[in-house]
């Protein structure tokens, strides 16, 4: 397999090896990444404060009374911490204020949504999504997926030229963020707006009602938190300095081949 890959390379461009510095991230990706670090963090922390104002989630068009049928809450955290389940150290602001949290949330929502829309357009038109994010048929084969999961579980990550591209688990994770979680969180956020319900009533039908949209909003946010945790762990395991440098400057040092591979 290595042979065919090498054969397809033009002779004047030798295949990079472990230890080489390679161009990894486009400026658009790096800019968007760091805008998102700020915007998603603020959205999450202010969102948890907003959730504190009514710490229950429902399905359907309406939902207000967690203990009265038929709008029972499927999630009710109101018994935690005296009705304020998320503590001050993970909320914006750190003291209880629904009004201030909304002020932050609805302002940074613009930054999140506009940056996302621009980046998505760039990724779709410029080919980043197709070239780097979309998994190939071969990568999605169960045997390949299983192999990659096993290798990850043993903390053996791709090295050398194999690390030039995202592996299939990375592609699936980034694809989920780009095509499911972020559009999900933005569109469900819009669906909770009574003004936008009048302007774009199809949003209500898409998500099955305002309270369903609110539940999905929370679930997508939880998905983003799960991604964040896995992402940080992977960055630390893969070499945080090299990884952070590549997201700042674009240059990435390919991990050296393991001795047992040589």
């Amino acid at each position: 397999m290595n042979d065919t890959a090498e054969a397809s390379q033009p002779p004047e461009a030798p295949r990079p090896r472990g230890g080489d510095l390679v161009r990894r991230h486009h400026l658009a990706t790096r800019l968007w990444h760091w805008i998102n670090v700020i915007a998603v963090t603020i959205m999450l922390m202010s969102g948890l404060m907003i959730f504190n104002a009514h710490p229950r989630l429902y399905w359907g068009q309406y939902g207000a009374n967690p203990r009265q049928a038929p709008d029972p809450a499927w999630l009710d955290l109101s018994h935690i911490n005296g009705g304020v389940p998320f503590p001050g150290w993970i909320t914006i602001p750190s003291h209880y204020s629904l009004a201030d949290a909304r002020l932050w949330h609805l302002a940074f929502a613009w930054i999140l949504a506009v940056a996302f829309a621009l980046y998505l357009l760039w990724a779709l038109i410029g080919g980043h999504a197709r070239r780097d994010i979309a998994p190939t048929r071969g990568e999605l084969a169960p045997a390949h997926l299983l192999h990659d999961i096993k290798e990850h579980a043993r903390l053996r990550f791709p090295t050398g030229a194999a690390a030039l591209q995202y592996n299939v688990l990375q592609k699936l994770a980034y694809g989920a963020v780009l095509f499911v979680l972020l559009p999900g969180v933005i569109l469900t956020g819009m669906t909770m707006s009574p003004g936008l319900n009048a302007a774009l009533p199809w949003l209500l039908d898409l998500f099955g009602g305002r309270q369903s949209a609110r539940s999905i909003h929370f679930l997508c946010a939880a998905g983003l938190v799960a991604f964040f945790v896995a992402h940080i762990i992977m960055v630390v395991l893969a070499g945080p300095i090299n990884e952070v440098r590549s997201m700042l400057t674009g240059w990435y040092r390919l991990p050296r081949e393991r001795e047992d591979q040589a």
């Binding site: 068009q61 207000a64 319900n197 302007a199 009533p201």
Partner: peptide, 24 residues
Amino acid sequence: SQRFLMGDRLAREFGESDISPVFK
């Protein structure tokens, strides 16, 4: 931007069967 998008469109109106049994 909301005013631009919605003009004088109406909020959604529901049917009798959609009414909340308990209006908080």
